[in-house]
Nucleic acid binder design. Structure first.
Lengths: 206, 206
DNA sequence: TGATTCACTGACCGTGCGTTCAGTGAGCTG
DNA sequence: CAGCTCACTGAACGCACGGTCAGTGAATCA
């Protein structure tokens, strides 16, 4: 059985605290301006302690990103795996995104920063290997759902992957706007907007 | 008349060279990893020379962004000012974006970096004042065009600003994908995809 | 042609970062 | 209770960056 020793428990707790602190600081200051010192202060540990659990800053950010994005992926997968029509499925996927980022506001900055690789070529390659796949995989899964709907005749044929990219990125803009608004409308209103646009477009029908 | 003295000409040339170098280096290394030294080398001048024309790194980046985004805005404005139906107008706006970024690949990284403010509060405020307005203004102009179309009954009523954000951001994803593709399809194909989605959605009609 | 100017240079400086590691002390051990 | 262990600490280090400014020499002037 999976009984955890006291050491394991305290280790996991430390790792979690540090990762949460990392997200909060990056959420507040932005990727570039988030320093190890401030992350350590925020987590209530010494700077050196972080290096007991993470090799360097890069690994810290990477692991922090990964553990959060996996939670998002779980929700999206749950939405995609349901046996429902494409209408409901798209709405569910969008609801998963809006809900997740609503609950994890601090993560949003980190999420935006890591979509676009930074730094010299070597760093970029490493980021491409670790962070972009999550983005790409999510887009591919969504594209797969669109293709299935095309096969079933629910959706017009077209480049499903590019459609998926468009939709995911477009919703990101709406989510960003929601997070900046003082009094965002209920999630339903924005979900209706998004799904309405995706499914039926903006053209008025007679 | 506007005869330029020799000094003015050489000044303009310097400024242009430095700004072009800035875009190339940021395009290659990313915003954070682009150093003044490398920009200077790329422009073929000494580091100190840059500071004769720009107060500091921040102003350099800001001005570089501004002069490029204004060129984009000109194209978009031209597309929006035409007296044509909303179908053609949307296509023209999208064509302006795709075309511009196709011709100014190096600028794309800079563009993506400056959408989301970085750094501590003071820096963020300055960026909000200088860079975000261009983004917001573009979205508002596009939203205005959508509202006009709503008034004319061409488009269903809805939150025009959020629709504009969704559309602009979604197209950005397609453009990014185009820039990464080894052999992107002709612009027409992607423009059809985008305008088709926006106007009529993805749902198959009987 | 000697004097003057000034755009340009690049070695230098201070700062602030990520990273290290000798030291500390709470808690376990025998 | 003496000795030991080891997770944790934070001062110190090296480095790379943005920014400075005394110096240089080509172009201009008188």
């Amino acid at each position: 059985m999976a009984a955890k020793s006291k050491e394991e428990v305290v280790q996991e707790y430390r790792i979690e605290s540090i990762q949460e602190a990392t997200m909060r600081v990056i959420g507040r200051k932005g990727m570039a301006a988030a320093t190890m010192q401030e992350i350590a202060d925020e987590a209530g540990v010494a700077k050196g302690t972080i290096y007991l659990y993470f090799r360097d800053r890069e690994e810290l950010v990477e692991k922090t990103f990964e553990s959060a994005i996996l939670r998002l992926m779980d929700r999206v997968d749950a939405a995609l795996d349901q046996e429902i029509g494409i209408d409901a499925k798209i709405r569910a996927v969008m609801a998963a995104h809006v809900g997740f980022f609503g609950e994890n506001r601090e993560f949003f900055r980190l999420y935006l920063s890591l979509r676009m690789p930074e730094g010299p070529a070597t760093r970029q390659r490493r980021q491409k290997q670790h962070c972009q796949p999550h983005y790409r995989v999510r887009a591919e899964k969504f594209a797969k759902a669109l293709e299935d709907a095309m096969d079933r005749g629910e959706v017009r044929r077209g480049d499903a992957y590019k459609l998926a990219l468009f939709i995911i990125e477009g919703s990101t803009a709406i989510i960003l706007e929601r997070l900046n608004e003082d009094a965002p409308p209920s999630e339903e209103v924005d979900l209706d907007l998004i799904t309405g646009l995706i499914l039926d477009g903006i053209r008025k029908r007679s």
